[in-house]
């Protein structure tokens, strides 16, 4: 067993922690949380369905079943979802928490 002089152990721990922190930061800086994505950021499925349901309600479309024709991220975590209704095109804006911000005829 090697002897460690007073203060040497603390210096080693501090240096080691600093190196580990720097390494972790450098390694994590550019690594995205997900390793799979689509080239076009479509709205998550649950938001597409929530918007479809809300569009039917707000535009009083009765029992019409809507499916999105397109969607995309307007601003970070806010999505626009487009529909073709029997009465013409419409769109819905929804945030990532599922709150519908607006529904309009296009």
């Amino acid at each position: 067993m090697a002897f460690i002089r007073p203060g040497q152990g603390i210096r080693a721990i501090v240096t080691g922690t600093a190196i580990l922190t720097l390494t972790a930061c450098a390694g994590g800086r550019n690594t995205p949380e997900e390793t799979i994505r689509t080239n076009v950021r479509t709205a998550p499925a649950e938001l597409q369905l929530a918007c479809a349901s809300e569009t039917v309600t707000r535009l009083q479309l009765g029992d019409e079943q809507l499916l999105p024709i397109s969607s995309g991220e307007v601003t970070p975590n806010v999505y626009r979802i487009d529909f073709n209704t029997k009465g013409g095109p419409a769109f819905c804006i929804i945030d990532g928490s599922g709150t519908v911000l607006s529904v309009e005829r296009a």
Partner: peptide
């Protein structure tokens, strides 16, 4: 309004997206 601009930009981007297929991508660390 910034929201209106973003929405318009998004509509244009969405239109462009329909024209080109949506493709999956993978990150290489």
């Amino acid at each position: 309004r910034p929201f209106g601009i973003a929405s318009l930009a998004c509509a244009i981007l969405i239109a462009a997206a329909i024209a080109s297929p949506i493709e999956t991508q993978i990150y290489d660390a």
